[in-house]
């Protein structure tokens, strides 16, 4: 019982916040927190998630595609659906929520390359790496998500 009442250690806190421990530290530094103990209450983690822009869920589990390729494409399509366009970005790691590690890695690798291709915008700030759809590219990104258009970067990332 004592264990469940204790603040979470670094690994449990990171798992709870759905980021890696080093990202949790970086977000706290970005929020201006003086990190004393490497321990977090769930209340504090809720604040970190809110202020750090961490989404609990990205793709709706009930509507998640059954193939890895489909899930990776949809992760980018969700940017359009949620309106993360232009000056309204979201964390890149939000796109990986709920996906297996390998699929998350492919999304992280593909995002900057898709930005190079002109489909996305990427910016890095104190709270992490952020991504948004480049204005005017919404329909293209939706088509890539649907598999009716192609991004070479995404295709290469999925093939690796």
């Amino acid at each position: 019982m004592i264990r469940e009442l204790r603040p979470l250690g670094l690994v449990d806190a990171a798992k709870f916040a759905k980021v890696d421990p080093f990202e949790l530290i970086r977000i706290e530094v970005g929020l201006g927190t003086q990190i004393e103990r490497l321990a977090w209450s769930k209340d504090r983690l809720a604040v970190v998630a809110r202020d750090g822009g961490i989404e609990a869920v990205w793709l709706d589990p009930a509507k998640m595609p059954t193939t890895a390729a489909g899930r990776i494409r949809e992760a980018f399509g969700e940017l359009v659906r949620r309106g993360f366009v232009g000056t309204k970005p979201t964390r890149v790691d939000n796109l990986t929520r709920g996906l297996p590690l390998g699929e998350g890695d492919r999304i992280r690798r593909a995002a900057p390359l898709m930005a190079d291709e002109g489909f996305l915008l990427m910016v890095s700030g104190p709270l992490g790496a952020l991504v948004a759809v480049r204005p005017g590219m919404e329909s293209q990104v939706s088509a890539i998500a649907a598999g009716t258009a192609e991004s070479r970067a995404l295709r290469d990332a999925m093939a690796e």
Binding site: L10, P21, R26
Partner: peptide, 13 residues
């Protein structure tokens, strides 16, 4: 959690 991770986390901090 172990000393390796704590050390790494403090370096990142």
């Amino acid at each position: 959690d172990d000393v390796d991770l704590w050390l790494a986390a403090r370096v990142v901090q």
